[in-house]
Simulated assay, not measured.
Amino acid sequence: MMKNLLLPIYLTVALLTSCAVVPPAQSNANAGASNSPSNSPQAKQKPFDHFAERDDLPDLKWQTSKNSDGSLNLYIKVNNATHFLKRVESFDKLNPSSDEYNLYGVPRKATLACDYRKVGSHQEDGNKLYAIIYAHTVQIYDGWIAPGEMDNRDWKLFRSIPF
């Protein structure tokens, strides 16, 4: 009676293990030098990375224009299209190659970043913008950093511009 129950269980386990899929890197590593992982087509393919360097990246620039009241209109230029972002009192670009990105909590993969002061504000108030390319959009994040509290950051998606 027990043998009759064990046979279907044994056959089920054998069937399941024979259908198991072994990842290409493991199966090629056991097959020898001619099929090493570095020579296989699967090893050369990388997973899709929205932030990876690509050939179709847009040209991005900050632009400003001065208003009659002394304030500035802040724009981002994506390729040949100019997009209005906001009216500001002052504007300073942040240098991505310096420690400014790290200091203000801007991601290293951000393409552009700036420091700005809101219209009507009479003191530095820690407002920042940064632009990052994600898939086929330029995402602009607006953030505020509490003066003297560099760990207190608040970033929100401000605008998403397809390219």
Score class of each variant (00 low, 15 high):
residue 112 L to H: 03
residue 33 A to W: 13
residue 142 D to L: 13
residue 88 V to M: 12
residue 132 I to G: 04
residue 155 W to R: 08
residue 92 D to A: 13
residue 117 R to L: 05
residue 142 D to K: 08
residue 17 T to Y: 09
residue 6 L to C: 08
residue 7 L to S: 14
residue 51 F to K: 15
residue 19 C to V: 02
residue 14 A to T: 03
residue 137 T to K: 13
residue 107 P to I: 00
residue 43 A to L: 01
residue 109 K to G: 00
residue 72 L to D: 14
residue 21 V to Y: 13
residue 150 M to V: 06
residue 94 L to M: 10
residue 119 V to R: 05
residue 151 D to A: 10
residue 163 F to T: 00
residue 85 L to V: 11
residue 48 F to C: 14
residue 155 W to K: 12
residue 39 N to R: 14
residue 111 T to V: 15
residue 75 Y to Q: 13
residue 76 I to Y: 10
residue 17 T to E: 04
residue 94 L to C: 04
residue 145 I to T: 05
residue 96 P to W: 01
residue 97 S to A: 04
residue 107 P to E: 00
residue 99 D to K: 07
residue 131 A to G: 07
residue 54 R to A: 06
residue 83 H to S: 07
residue 108 R to M: 07
residue 31 A to N: 03
residue 157 L to G: 07
residue 135 A to N: 14
residue 71 S to C: 15
residue 138 V to I: 09
residue 83 H to R: 10
residue 128 K to H: 11
residue 57 L to I: 10
residue 76 I to G: 14
residue 80 N to G: 14
residue 122 H to R: 11
residue 23 P to D: 00
residue 41 P to L: 02
residue 100 E to W: 10
residue 27 S to W: 04
residue 19 C to P: 02
residue 97 S to W: 06
residue 131 A to I: 01
residue 5 L to V: 14
residue 135 A to P: 05
residue 2 M to L: 15
residue 70 G to K: 15
residue 7 L to H: 07
residue 104 Y to Q: 04
residue 85 L to W: 11
residue 157 L to D: 02
residue 60 L to I: 04
residue 75 Y to V: 09
residue 62 W to H: 13
residue 152 N to W: 15
residue 56 D to M: 13
residue 82 T to V: 10
residue 69 D to S: 08
residue 130 Y to F: 08
residue 114 C to K: 03
residue 13 V to M: 06
residue 113 A to I: 00
residue 22 V to S: 09
residue 75 Y to G: 11
residue 151 D to K: 08
residue 64 T to L: 09
residue 3 K to C: 09
residue 143 G to A: 05
residue 51 F to E: 07
residue 14 A to M: 06
residue 147 P to N: 14
residue 158 F to D: 02
residue 45 Q to D: 03
residue 119 V to S: 03
residue 42 Q to K: 07
residue 94 L to S: 02
residue 158 F to I: 00
residue 107 P to T: 00
residue 11 L to N: 09
residue 121 S to E: 06
residue 64 T to V: 14
residue 95 N to Q: 05
residue 134 Y to I: 11
residue 6 L to V: 04
residue 40 S to N: 03
residue 79 N to R: 13
residue 146 A to N: 12
residue 30 N to G: 11
residue 136 H to G: 15
residue 64 T to H: 12
residue 109 K to I: 01
residue 108 R to F: 15
residue 115 D to G: 08
residue 111 T to E: 08
residue 148 G to T: 09
residue 39 N to S: 12
residue 127 N to L: 02
residue 28 N to L: 13
residue 7 L to Q: 12
residue 144 W to I: 10
residue 115 D to K: 06
residue 70 G to V: 05
residue 68 S to A: 15
residue 51 F to G: 04
residue 14 A to P: 02
residue 98 S to W: 03
residue 59 D to P: 06
residue 2 M to F: 09
residue 127 N to E: 02
residue 124 E to Y: 14
residue 142 D to Y: 13
residue 96 P to Q: 01
residue 117 R to E: 03
residue 44 K to I: 04
residue 11 L to Y: 05
residue 49 D to E: 08
residue 152 N to S: 11
residue 120 G to I: 00
residue 49 D to G: 08
residue 75 Y to I: 06
residue 53 E to C: 07
residue 162 P to T: 00
residue 116 Y to A: 00
residue 147 P to Y: 12
residue 143 G to H: 09
residue 116 Y to C: 00
residue 37 P to A: 01
residue 79 N to A: 15
residue 102 N to A: 07
residue 44 K to W: 09
residue 137 T to L: 14
